[in-house]
Nucleic acid binder design. Sequence first.
DNA 1: GCATTACGCTACGACTCGTAGCGAAAGCCC
DNA 2: GGGCTTTCGCTACGAGTCGTAGCGTAATGC
Lengths: 219, 219
Amino acid sequence: MAQNGGYGRGMQIRTPVCRTGRPRSAAADTAILAATRAALVELGWSKLTLGDVATRAGVAKTTLYRRWPGKNELVVDAVAELFGELELPDRGSLAADIEGVVLQFAAILARPEAKSGLMAVVAESTRDDALRERIRASIVDPQKDLVLEGRARAQTRGELPTETDPEEAARTVDLIFDVVAGAVVHRTLVSAEPADEEWVRDFTRVLLLGLTASAPERF
Amino acid sequence: MAQNGGYGRGMQIRTPVCRTGRPRSAAADTAILAATRAALVELGWSKLTLGDVATRAGVAKTTLYRRWPGKNELVVDAVAELFGELELPDRGSLAADIEGVVLQFAAILARPEAKSGLMAVVAESTRDDALRERIRASIVDPQKDLVLEGRARAQTRGELPTETDPEEAARTVDLIFDVVAGAVVHRTLVSAEPADEEWVRDFTRVLLLGLTASAPERF
DNA sequence: GCATTACGCTACGACTCGTAGCGAAAGCCC
DNA sequence: GGGCTTTCGCTACGAGTCGTAGCGTAATGC
Protein backbone atom coordinates (compact mmCIF):
# COMPACT_ATOMS: atom_id res chain seq x y z
CA MET A 1 0.00 0.00 0.00
CA ALA A 2 1.50 3.34 -1.01
CA GLN A 3 1.75 5.89 1.74
CA ASN A 4 -1.01 8.45 1.44
CA GLY A 5 0.96 11.68 1.04
CA GLY A 6 1.03 14.57 3.44
CA TYR A 7 2.87 13.42 6.53
CA GLY A 8 2.26 15.47 9.62
CA ARG A 9 5.20 15.23 11.96
CA GLY A 10 6.23 12.73 14.57
CA MET A 11 3.40 10.37 15.39
CA GLN A 12 0.78 11.88 13.14
CA ILE A 13 1.57 9.78 10.13
CA ARG A 14 -1.39 8.30 8.17
CA THR A 15 -5.04 9.59 8.23
CA PRO A 16 -5.61 11.25 4.86
CA VAL A 17 -7.13 14.37 6.42
CA CYS A 18 -10.90 14.21 6.47
CA ARG A 19 -13.03 16.97 7.77
CA THR A 20 -16.55 15.60 7.48
CA GLY A 21 -18.00 12.43 8.93
CA ARG A 22 -17.40 10.74 12.25
CA PRO A 23 -13.88 11.46 13.48
CA ARG A 24 -11.52 8.72 14.46
CA SER A 25 -11.32 8.01 18.15
CA ALA A 26 -8.03 9.30 19.48
CA ALA A 27 -8.52 7.15 22.56
CA ALA A 28 -8.55 4.09 20.33
CA ASP A 29 -5.15 5.04 18.95
CA THR A 30 -3.50 5.25 22.33
CA ALA A 31 -5.27 2.11 23.51
CA ILE A 32 -4.11 0.19 20.46
CA LEU A 33 -0.50 1.30 20.78
CA ALA A 34 -0.48 0.51 24.49
CA ALA A 35 -2.02 -2.88 23.79
CA THR A 36 0.63 -3.50 21.15
CA ARG A 37 3.39 -2.85 23.66
CA ALA A 38 1.71 -5.08 26.21
CA ALA A 39 1.43 -7.85 23.66
CA LEU A 40 5.10 -7.41 22.75
CA VAL A 41 6.02 -7.88 26.39
CA GLU A 42 3.94 -11.00 26.83
CA LEU A 43 4.23 -12.67 23.45
CA GLY A 44 7.19 -11.15 21.66
CA TRP A 45 7.23 -10.21 18.01
CA SER A 46 6.58 -13.46 16.22
CA LYS A 47 3.66 -14.62 18.35
CA LEU A 48 2.01 -11.23 18.36
CA THR A 49 -1.22 -11.27 16.36
CA LEU A 50 -3.33 -8.31 15.35
CA GLY A 51 -6.43 -10.08 16.55
CA ASP A 52 -4.96 -10.31 20.02
CA VAL A 53 -3.96 -6.66 20.01
CA ALA A 54 -7.45 -5.66 18.99
CA THR A 55 -8.96 -7.66 21.82
CA ARG A 56 -6.58 -6.15 24.36
CA ALA A 57 -7.33 -2.65 23.12
CA GLY A 58 -11.07 -3.25 23.21
CA VAL A 59 -11.54 -2.49 19.52
CA ALA A 60 -12.56 -4.55 16.52
CA LYS A 61 -9.88 -6.15 14.41
CA THR A 62 -11.17 -4.30 11.39
CA THR A 63 -10.56 -0.97 13.11
CA LEU A 64 -6.93 -1.91 13.43
CA TYR A 65 -6.62 -2.72 9.75
CA ARG A 66 -8.30 0.54 8.83
CA ARG A 67 -5.55 2.53 10.56
CA TRP A 68 -2.41 0.51 9.97
CA PRO A 69 -1.36 -1.43 6.89
CA GLY A 70 -0.02 -4.30 8.95
CA LYS A 71 1.89 -5.57 11.94
CA ASN A 72 5.15 -3.91 10.98
CA GLU A 73 3.82 -0.39 10.84
CA LEU A 74 1.81 -0.84 14.01
CA VAL A 75 4.84 -1.95 15.99
CA VAL A 76 6.95 0.87 14.60
CA ASP A 77 4.48 3.41 15.91
CA ALA A 78 4.16 1.61 19.24
CA VAL A 79 7.93 1.54 19.72
CA ALA A 80 8.42 5.08 18.44
CA GLU A 81 6.41 6.38 21.36
CA LEU A 82 8.92 4.85 23.73
CA PHE A 83 11.83 6.67 22.15
CA GLY A 84 9.86 9.89 22.12
CA GLU A 85 10.83 10.26 25.76
CA LEU A 86 14.47 10.91 24.83
CA GLU A 87 15.74 14.35 25.80
CA LEU A 88 19.06 16.10 25.97
CA PRO A 89 19.17 18.54 28.88
CA ASP A 90 22.31 20.62 29.21
CA ARG A 91 24.42 18.85 31.80
CA GLY A 92 27.33 21.26 31.54
CA SER A 93 29.84 19.20 29.61
CA LEU A 94 29.96 17.00 26.57
CA ALA A 95 30.90 14.00 28.66
CA ALA A 96 27.94 14.52 30.96
CA ASP A 97 25.60 15.10 28.03
CA ILE A 98 26.67 11.87 26.37
CA GLU A 99 26.47 9.84 29.55
CA GLY A 100 23.04 11.22 30.27
CA VAL A 101 21.48 10.51 26.92
CA VAL A 102 23.12 7.11 26.63
CA LEU A 103 21.74 6.13 30.00
CA GLN A 104 18.29 7.23 28.90
CA PHE A 105 18.63 5.27 25.68
CA ALA A 106 19.79 2.23 27.61
CA ALA A 107 16.87 2.51 30.00
CA ILE A 108 14.41 2.44 27.13
CA LEU A 109 16.17 -0.47 25.47
CA ALA A 110 16.04 -2.38 28.74
CA ARG A 111 12.27 -2.57 28.45
CA PRO A 112 11.18 -5.83 26.85
CA GLU A 113 8.70 -4.20 24.48
CA ALA A 114 11.51 -2.10 23.02
CA LYS A 115 13.91 -5.01 22.81
CA SER A 116 11.69 -7.41 20.95
CA GLY A 117 9.93 -4.80 18.88
CA LEU A 118 12.71 -2.58 17.63
CA MET A 119 15.04 -5.13 16.12
CA ALA A 120 12.19 -7.05 14.56
CA VAL A 121 10.97 -4.08 12.57
CA VAL A 122 14.51 -3.14 11.65
CA ALA A 123 14.98 -6.64 10.28
CA GLU A 124 11.77 -6.35 8.29
CA SER A 125 12.76 -2.92 7.02
CA THR A 126 15.66 -4.42 5.12
CA ARG A 127 13.13 -5.72 2.63
CA ASP A 128 10.53 -2.92 2.75
CA ASP A 129 11.52 0.60 1.74
CA ALA A 130 8.32 2.19 2.99
CA LEU A 131 8.82 0.60 6.38
CA ARG A 132 12.41 1.77 6.56
CA GLU A 133 11.27 5.28 5.74
CA ARG A 134 8.69 5.10 8.50
CA ILE A 135 11.32 3.99 11.01
CA ARG A 136 13.67 6.70 9.88
CA ALA A 137 11.12 9.44 10.21
CA SER A 138 9.65 8.42 13.57
CA ILE A 139 12.59 6.84 15.39
CA VAL A 140 15.98 7.37 13.78
CA ASP A 141 15.88 11.01 12.77
CA PRO A 142 14.74 12.27 16.17
CA GLN A 143 17.68 10.43 17.69
CA LYS A 144 20.07 11.90 15.18
CA ASP A 145 18.73 15.34 16.02
CA LEU A 146 19.91 14.78 19.56
CA VAL A 147 23.40 14.10 18.27
CA LEU A 148 23.29 17.30 16.27
CA GLU A 149 22.11 19.24 19.27
CA GLY A 150 24.73 17.85 21.60
CA ARG A 151 27.42 18.40 19.03
CA ALA A 152 26.49 22.02 18.46
CA ARG A 153 26.40 22.59 22.20
CA ALA A 154 29.85 21.08 22.61
CA GLN A 155 31.21 23.21 19.82
CA THR A 156 30.01 26.41 21.45
CA ARG A 157 31.65 25.20 24.64
CA GLY A 158 34.87 24.66 22.70
CA GLU A 159 34.92 20.93 23.47
CA LEU A 160 34.78 19.84 19.85
CA PRO A 161 36.43 21.30 16.78
CA THR A 162 34.17 23.02 14.27
CA GLU A 163 34.47 21.37 10.91
CA THR A 164 34.95 23.63 7.94
CA ASP A 165 33.63 21.25 5.33
CA PRO A 166 29.88 20.80 5.86
CA GLU A 167 29.96 17.43 4.13
CA GLU A 168 32.64 16.17 6.45
CA ALA A 169 30.63 17.48 9.38
CA ALA A 170 27.64 15.43 8.23
CA ARG A 171 29.82 12.34 7.94
CA THR A 172 31.09 12.86 11.45
CA VAL A 173 27.59 13.22 12.85
CA ASP A 174 26.49 10.03 11.12
CA LEU A 175 29.53 8.23 12.45
CA ILE A 176 28.92 9.35 16.01
CA PHE A 177 25.30 8.39 15.77
CA ASP A 178 26.01 4.89 14.53
CA VAL A 179 28.73 4.35 17.12
CA VAL A 180 26.64 5.51 20.05
CA ALA A 181 23.34 3.93 19.15
CA GLY A 182 24.96 0.83 17.72
CA ALA A 183 27.09 0.18 20.76
CA VAL A 184 24.19 0.51 23.17
CA VAL A 185 21.91 -1.65 21.06
CA HIS A 186 24.54 -4.31 20.60
CA ARG A 187 25.40 -4.34 24.27
CA THR A 188 21.77 -4.63 25.28
CA LEU A 189 20.41 -7.01 22.66
CA VAL A 190 23.29 -9.08 21.34
CA SER A 191 25.59 -9.28 24.32
CA ALA A 192 22.47 -9.22 26.45
CA GLU A 193 24.12 -7.36 29.27
CA PRO A 194 22.95 -4.11 30.86
CA ALA A 195 24.42 -0.82 29.73
CA ASP A 196 24.82 0.33 33.33
CA GLU A 197 26.61 3.40 34.65
CA GLU A 198 29.98 1.72 34.70
CA TRP A 199 29.72 0.62 31.08
CA VAL A 200 28.42 4.00 29.99
CA ARG A 201 31.35 5.69 31.74
CA ASP A 202 33.86 3.47 29.97
CA PHE A 203 32.15 3.91 26.65
CA THR A 204 31.93 7.67 26.95
CA ARG A 205 35.61 7.89 27.83
CA VAL A 206 36.65 5.96 24.73
CA LEU A 207 34.30 7.86 22.45
CA LEU A 208 35.30 11.25 23.80
CA LEU A 209 38.99 10.54 23.50
CA GLY A 210 38.43 9.32 19.97
CA LEU A 211 36.63 12.52 19.04
CA THR A 212 38.70 15.14 20.83
CA ALA A 213 42.10 13.63 20.11
CA SER A 214 41.15 13.75 16.45
CA ALA A 215 41.54 17.53 16.47
CA PRO A 216 44.29 17.71 13.88
CA GLU A 217 46.86 19.99 15.49
CA ARG A 218 46.82 20.73 19.20
CA PHE A 219 49.75 21.72 21.44
CA MET B 1 11.95 -27.84 23.70
CA ALA B 2 14.97 -28.45 25.91
CA GLN B 3 18.25 -28.76 24.10
CA ASN B 4 19.44 -32.33 23.97
CA GLY B 5 22.74 -32.08 25.84
CA GLY B 6 26.18 -32.70 24.45
CA TYR B 7 26.95 -29.83 22.12
CA GLY B 8 29.73 -30.47 19.68
CA ARG B 9 31.40 -27.27 18.62
CA GLY B 10 30.62 -24.66 16.07
CA MET B 11 27.99 -25.90 13.64
CA GLN B 12 27.66 -29.40 15.04
CA ILE B 13 24.94 -28.57 17.50
CA ARG B 14 21.99 -31.06 17.78
CA THR B 15 22.02 -34.77 16.70
CA PRO B 16 22.15 -36.76 19.95
CA VAL B 17 24.95 -38.98 18.69
CA CYS B 18 23.67 -42.21 17.15
CA ARG B 19 25.91 -44.86 15.74
CA THR B 20 23.51 -47.48 14.43
CA GLY B 21 20.73 -47.14 11.88
CA ARG B 22 20.54 -45.05 8.75
CA PRO B 23 22.73 -41.95 9.12
CA ARG B 24 21.39 -38.51 8.48
CA SER B 25 22.14 -37.13 5.08
CA ALA B 26 24.80 -34.46 5.40
CA ALA B 27 23.88 -33.23 1.96
CA ALA B 28 20.37 -32.53 3.22
CA ASP B 29 21.80 -30.31 5.93
CA THR B 30 23.73 -28.12 3.55
CA ALA B 31 20.84 -28.06 1.10
CA ILE B 32 18.44 -26.99 3.83
CA LEU B 33 20.69 -24.23 5.11
CA ALA B 34 21.33 -22.97 1.59
CA ALA B 35 17.62 -23.05 0.89
CA THR B 36 16.98 -21.12 4.07
CA ARG B 37 19.33 -18.37 2.97
CA ALA B 38 17.75 -18.29 -0.47
CA ALA B 39 14.32 -17.99 1.09
CA LEU B 40 15.57 -15.19 3.35
CA VAL B 41 16.75 -13.29 0.28
CA GLU B 42 13.51 -13.70 -1.61
CA LEU B 43 10.93 -13.58 1.14
CA GLY B 44 12.54 -12.06 4.20
CA TRP B 45 12.08 -13.30 7.72
CA SER B 46 8.39 -12.96 8.35
CA LYS B 47 7.21 -14.49 5.08
CA LEU B 48 9.66 -17.36 5.26
CA THR B 49 7.86 -20.66 5.90
CA LEU B 50 9.42 -23.99 6.72
CA GLY B 51 7.31 -25.67 4.11
CA ASP B 52 8.80 -23.44 1.46
CA VAL B 53 12.32 -24.09 2.69
CA ALA B 54 11.72 -27.83 2.57
CA THR B 55 10.48 -27.61 -1.01
CA ARG B 56 13.48 -25.54 -2.08
CA ALA B 57 15.86 -27.96 -0.41
CA GLY B 58 14.16 -30.95 -1.99
CA VAL B 59 13.37 -32.60 1.33
CA ALA B 60 10.16 -33.34 3.17
CA LYS B 61 8.86 -30.84 5.70
CA THR B 62 8.99 -33.50 8.38
CA THR B 63 12.72 -33.95 7.84
CA LEU B 64 13.19 -30.30 8.63
CA TYR B 65 11.28 -30.57 11.89
CA ARG B 66 13.26 -33.65 12.86
CA ARG B 67 16.49 -31.64 12.77
CA TRP B 68 15.54 -28.19 13.96
CA PRO B 69 13.07 -27.21 16.66
CA GLY B 70 11.74 -24.33 14.63
CA LYS B 71 12.29 -21.39 12.34
CA ASN B 72 14.45 -19.46 14.78
CA GLU B 73 17.05 -22.14 15.25
CA LEU B 74 17.16 -22.93 11.55
CA VAL B 75 17.85 -19.33 10.61
CA VAL B 76 20.50 -19.01 13.30
CA ASP B 77 22.42 -21.92 11.81
CA ALA B 78 21.92 -20.63 8.29
CA VAL B 79 23.25 -17.19 9.20
CA ALA B 80 26.04 -18.54 11.38
CA GLU B 81 27.59 -20.15 8.33
CA LEU B 82 27.90 -16.73 6.75
CA PHE B 83 29.86 -15.33 9.67
CA GLY B 84 32.05 -18.39 9.75
CA GLU B 85 34.00 -16.81 6.90
CA LEU B 86 35.40 -14.12 9.22
CA GLU B 87 39.16 -14.21 9.63
CA LEU B 88 41.81 -11.97 11.11
CA PRO B 89 45.01 -12.19 9.12
CA ASP B 90 47.96 -10.22 10.47
CA ARG B 91 48.02 -7.01 8.47
CA GLY B 92 50.96 -5.53 10.35
CA SER B 93 49.27 -2.92 12.51
CA LEU B 94 46.27 -2.65 14.77
CA ALA B 95 44.69 -0.06 12.51
CA ALA B 96 45.04 -2.31 9.48
CA ASP B 97 43.74 -5.31 11.41
CA ILE B 98 40.67 -3.43 12.52
CA GLU B 99 39.97 -2.00 9.10
CA GLY B 100 40.34 -5.41 7.54
CA VAL B 101 38.02 -7.30 9.80
CA VAL B 102 35.46 -4.51 9.86
CA LEU B 103 35.37 -4.50 6.07
CA GLN B 104 34.85 -8.26 6.07
CA PHE B 105 32.08 -7.91 8.63
CA ALA B 106 30.47 -5.17 6.59
CA ALA B 107 30.66 -7.26 3.43
CA ILE B 108 28.77 -10.08 5.11
CA LEU B 109 26.18 -7.73 6.54
CA ALA B 110 25.66 -6.25 3.11
CA ARG B 111 24.16 -9.54 1.95
CA PRO B 112 20.39 -9.53 2.21
CA GLU B 113 20.18 -12.95 3.83
CA ALA B 114 22.39 -11.73 6.66
CA LYS B 115 20.52 -8.47 7.03
CA SER B 116 17.05 -9.85 7.34
CA GLY B 117 18.02 -13.00 9.19
CA LEU B 118 20.40 -11.80 11.85
CA MET B 119 18.37 -9.04 13.44
CA ALA B 120 15.22 -11.11 13.35
CA VAL B 121 16.71 -13.92 15.41
CA VAL B 122 18.34 -11.42 17.75
CA ALA B 123 14.94 -9.87 18.30
CA GLU B 124 13.43 -13.28 19.02
CA SER B 125 16.30 -14.15 21.34
CA THR B 126 15.22 -11.43 23.75
CA ARG B 127 12.38 -13.72 24.76
CA ASP B 128 14.06 -17.12 24.38
CA ASP B 129 17.08 -17.97 26.48
CA ALA B 130 17.92 -21.14 24.58
CA LEU B 131 17.91 -19.23 21.32
CA ARG B 132 20.14 -16.52 22.75
CA GLU B 133 22.56 -19.19 23.90
CA ARG B 134 22.57 -20.72 20.45
CA ILE B 135 23.33 -17.35 18.87
CA ARG B 136 26.04 -16.68 21.39
CA ALA B 137 27.76 -19.99 20.81
CA SER B 138 27.61 -20.03 17.03
CA ILE B 139 27.82 -16.36 16.07
CA VAL B 140 28.78 -13.99 18.88
CA ASP B 141 31.58 -15.84 20.63
CA PRO B 142 33.56 -16.54 17.45
CA GLN B 143 33.43 -12.83 16.71
CA LYS B 144 34.56 -11.95 20.19
CA ASP B 145 37.46 -14.35 19.78
CA LEU B 146 38.61 -12.22 16.87
CA VAL B 147 38.65 -9.20 19.14
CA LEU B 148 40.71 -11.11 21.69
CA GLU B 149 43.13 -12.22 19.00
CA GLY B 150 43.56 -8.77 17.53
CA ARG B 151 43.98 -7.27 20.95
CA ALA B 152 46.65 -9.73 22.00
CA ARG B 153 48.46 -9.14 18.74
CA ALA B 154 48.37 -5.40 19.25
CA GLN B 155 49.67 -5.75 22.77
CA THR B 156 52.68 -7.75 21.65
CA ARG B 157 53.28 -5.03 19.08
CA GLY B 158 53.12 -2.46 21.88
CA GLU B 159 50.19 -0.68 20.28
CA LEU B 160 47.87 -1.21 23.22
CA PRO B 161 48.54 -1.10 26.95
CA THR B 162 48.42 -4.42 28.80
CA GLU B 163 45.87 -4.28 31.54
CA THR B 164 46.94 -5.52 34.95
CA ASP B 165 43.48 -6.32 36.25
CA PRO B 166 42.08 -9.29 34.31
CA GLU B 167 38.53 -8.24 35.06
CA GLU B 168 39.12 -4.79 33.64
CA ALA B 169 40.68 -6.40 30.60
CA ALA B 170 37.53 -8.47 30.05
CA ARG B 171 35.42 -5.32 30.37
CA THR B 172 37.54 -3.57 27.79
CA VAL B 173 37.25 -6.46 25.34
CA ASP B 174 33.49 -6.52 25.75
CA LEU B 175 33.36 -2.78 25.21
CA ILE B 176 35.43 -2.91 22.05
CA PHE B 177 33.34 -5.75 20.73
CA ASP B 178 30.06 -3.96 21.27
CA VAL B 179 31.39 -0.74 19.79
CA VAL B 180 32.80 -2.36 16.66
CA ALA B 181 30.04 -4.82 15.90
CA GLY B 182 27.33 -2.44 17.04
CA ALA B 183 28.54 0.43 14.90
CA VAL B 184 28.78 -1.67 11.76
CA VAL B 185 25.39 -3.27 12.31
CA HIS B 186 23.74 0.04 13.04
CA ARG B 187 25.33 1.68 10.04
CA THR B 188 24.27 -1.13 7.75
CA LEU B 189 20.80 -1.97 9.04
CA VAL B 190 19.42 1.10 10.79
CA SER B 191 21.06 3.92 8.88
CA ALA B 192 20.90 1.65 5.84
CA GLU B 193 24.07 3.03 4.35
CA PRO B 194 27.11 1.05 3.28
CA ALA B 195 30.06 0.68 5.62
CA ASP B 196 32.48 1.43 2.81
CA GLU B 197 36.20 2.04 3.00
CA GLU B 198 35.82 5.70 3.77
CA TRP B 199 33.47 5.05 6.66
CA VAL B 200 35.63 2.25 8.01
CA ARG B 201 38.66 4.53 7.90
CA ASP B 202 36.89 7.24 9.85
CA PHE B 203 35.54 4.75 12.33
CA THR B 204 38.86 3.06 12.89
CA ARG B 205 40.53 6.41 13.49
CA VAL B 206 38.05 7.38 16.19
CA LEU B 207 38.15 3.98 17.85
CA LEU B 208 41.92 3.76 17.80
CA LEU B 209 42.35 7.23 19.25
CA GLY B 210 39.85 6.38 21.92
CA LEU B 211 41.72 3.27 22.88
CA THR B 212 45.33 4.41 22.64
CA ALA B 213 44.82 7.86 24.12
CA SER B 214 43.30 6.12 27.12
CA ALA B 215 46.73 4.92 28.20
CA PRO B 216 46.78 6.71 31.54
CA GLU B 217 50.25 8.31 31.61
CA ARG B 218 52.33 8.80 28.50
CA PHE B 219 55.19 11.25 27.84
C1' DG C 1 -32.39 16.04 8.91
C1' DC C 2 -28.85 14.50 5.79
C1' DA C 3 -24.50 13.16 3.98
C1' DT C 4 -20.36 11.20 5.37
C1' DT C 5 -17.23 8.68 7.80
C1' DA C 6 -15.81 5.50 11.65
C1' DC C 7 -17.06 1.62 14.33
C1' DG C 8 -18.30 -3.21 16.00
C1' DC C 9 -19.54 -7.55 14.62
C1' DT C 10 -19.71 -11.76 11.90
C1' DA C 11 -18.29 -14.72 8.47
C1' DC C 12 -15.29 -16.31 5.03
C1' DG C 13 -11.47 -18.75 1.97
C1' DA C 14 -6.70 -19.22 2.00
C1' DC C 15 -2.78 -20.24 4.17
C1' DT C 16 0.64 -21.95 7.72
C1' DC C 17 1.57 -24.50 11.63
C1' DG C 18 3.41 -28.66 13.94
C1' DT C 19 2.35 -33.55 14.42
C1' DA C 20 1.05 -38.39 13.46
C1' DG C 21 1.17 -42.47 10.86
C1' DC C 22 2.75 -45.23 7.25
C1' DG C 23 5.83 -47.91 4.02
C1' DA C 24 10.30 -47.71 2.00
C1' DA C 25 15.29 -46.86 2.02
C1' DA C 26 19.97 -46.87 3.91
C1' DG C 27 23.17 -47.85 6.81
C1' DC C 28 25.66 -51.02 10.75
C1' DC C 29 26.53 -55.80 12.99
C1' DC C 30 26.39 -60.70 13.20
C1' DG D 1 22.78 -62.32 3.20
C1' DG D 2 19.62 -61.50 7.25
C1' DG D 3 18.15 -58.64 10.77
C1' DC D 4 18.02 -54.40 13.45
C1' DT D 5 17.79 -49.53 13.76
C1' DT D 6 17.08 -45.02 12.27
C1' DT D 7 15.99 -41.81 8.68
C1' DC D 8 13.30 -40.40 4.83
C1' DG D 9 9.31 -39.00 1.85
C1' DC D 10 4.62 -38.72 1.68
C1' DT D 11 -0.11 -37.82 3.12
C1' DA D 12 -3.41 -36.17 6.11
C1' DC D 13 -5.07 -33.68 9.93
C1' DG D 14 -7.02 -30.05 13.54
C1' DA D 15 -5.84 -25.70 15.08
C1' DG D 16 -4.86 -21.17 14.42
C1' DT D 17 -4.00 -16.73 11.83
C1' DC D 18 -4.52 -13.87 7.98
C1' DG D 19 -6.73 -9.98 5.60
C1' DT D 20 -11.19 -8.77 3.60
C1' DA D 21 -16.14 -8.12 2.81
C1' DG D 22 -20.61 -7.04 4.22
C1' DC D 23 -23.89 -5.06 7.22
C1' DG D 24 -26.19 -2.26 10.62
C1' DT D 25 -25.16 1.38 13.89
C1' DA D 26 -22.92 5.51 16.04
C1' DA D 27 -20.94 10.08 15.74
C1' DT D 28 -19.80 14.17 13.58
C1' DG D 29 -20.32 18.60 10.03
C1' DC D 30 -23.41 21.24 7.14
